[in-house]
Design a protein around this nucleic acid. Structure first.
Lengths: 209, 209
DNA sequence: AGTAGTCTACCGAACGGTCGGACGGCGCGT
DNA sequence: ACGCGCCGTCCGACCGTTCGGTAGACTACT
């Protein structure tokens, strides 16, 4: 056994996690039985418990993975030396694009995390707070530098992240909009909503991925 | 028995509905058992079935009631003869304030409606579409009249309603913000996000309720 | 006035089914 | 021979729902 590096074959634990994220998103955490999950993966219910100690732990793992994927990317953008307007625009675009691309995982994160048991919940709330404060700090800097209108940064953060998070519930892959298009438009609307003067220049700071 | 007019005492069916909305919001539809609901109301599980034929029907009723409360109010605003900017601002403010005030019901509407059985789901999707198209039409008019920037009205509707809907998940009654404050700020941010030139004049069209 | 019938509201007990989870064993690659 | 991955079987608890029945209040007929 040498070859397990570099994501060749998924591995059972990961396949379980993927199927779980998909099912949790479709049917909800409490609407998904371990039996249904096992069937989806192609193993028996008992085998699930070889890889995860409980249904709770499985959900916690999904949420943890989701968070640790996006947070470093947003942090890097937030700490770069663009103007606040550009940083906010890029961070929101990334946030939205990732929400669509990994929508099964992100849906679990934002919709099903409330079913976490108190033990896991505390950790989750803390990390989520840190993530959102990345956005809030950028907004505060933008207000201080006069890039945005004077306003409550807490409410602004709520509004903007709430707006971008909504793609999870509203986006349909068969729909008429492309993920990049949605993300760019949302970020435009968001930044403009704070009163930024030149959305174009903000978008110009964008790097095509 | 003469005195049942004018909402004096709630009546059992209504008390069941209220408790159900609260529990569904807190624990989710699938996380709430009929036993737990019965205990909350103060009757037995069997008695629930005297008032509602099934758990599904109960959820459907909650959602139906929610919709039929707000839709006429928004329709009236949308069809008034203010400029589009003012109509959108007022409609979004109303939408947000109601979402906070009736947050148990609205949470069921927006978070738990996906657990509706196909039968009820079809009706629900149709009415929801009609409701959101009220907003979209105002936005389209605003774009046509040059009050808003040229943009896709579908995406704009998604963004704005998504933003306002997020209060349900984020608002805490113990928090530092008053409902009216949140609603006004969100509507400001939203209308500004579309590129409206004078948010102040839009807010001036407001009627204090 | 008496009384039989009907209605609403509720309850206790039980239904079949499914839930998350526990335990021991089995085959196979090393 | 040893352990990892997987499976078959079983468990007690709880699920939504049904059913038969009771208590009381109102209605209608005699």
């Amino acid at each position: 056994m040498i070859n397990r590096e570099s994501a060749q074959e998924p591995g059972t634990a990961e396949r379980i996690r993927d199927s779980a994220a998909t099912l949790f998103r479709q049917k909800g955490f409490n609407g998904t039985s371990m039996q249904a999950l096992a069937t989806a993966v192609g193993i028996t219910k008992s085998s699930l418990y070889h890889h995860y100690p409980s249904k709770q732990a499985l959900l916690a793992e999904i949420i943890e993975v989701t968070m640790s994927r996006v947070t470093p990317l947003v942090r890097e953008i937030a700490q770069s030396d663009l103007p606040a307007t550009g940083r906010l625009h890029r961070a929101l675009t990334l946030h939205t694009v990732e929400s669509i691309r990994e929508r099964d995982y992100v849906a679990c994160f934002s919709e099903e995390s409330r079913y976490l048991s108190p033990t896991f919940m505390e950790t989750h709330r803390k990390k989520k707070g840190e993530y959102e404060s990345l956005f809030q700090k950028v907004i505060e800097e933008g207000i201080d530098r006069g890039e945005f209108l004077e306003q409550d940064s807490g409410l602004a953060t709520m509004a903007l992240l709430g707006m971008c998070d909504s793609v999870i519930r509203r986006y349909r892959p068969t729909g008429e909009y492309a993920p990049d298009e949605i993300a760019a438009t949302f970020a435009d609307t968001a930044v403009r909503g704070l009163g930024a003067r030149d959305t174009e220049r903000a978008a110009a700071g964008e790097v095509t991925r």
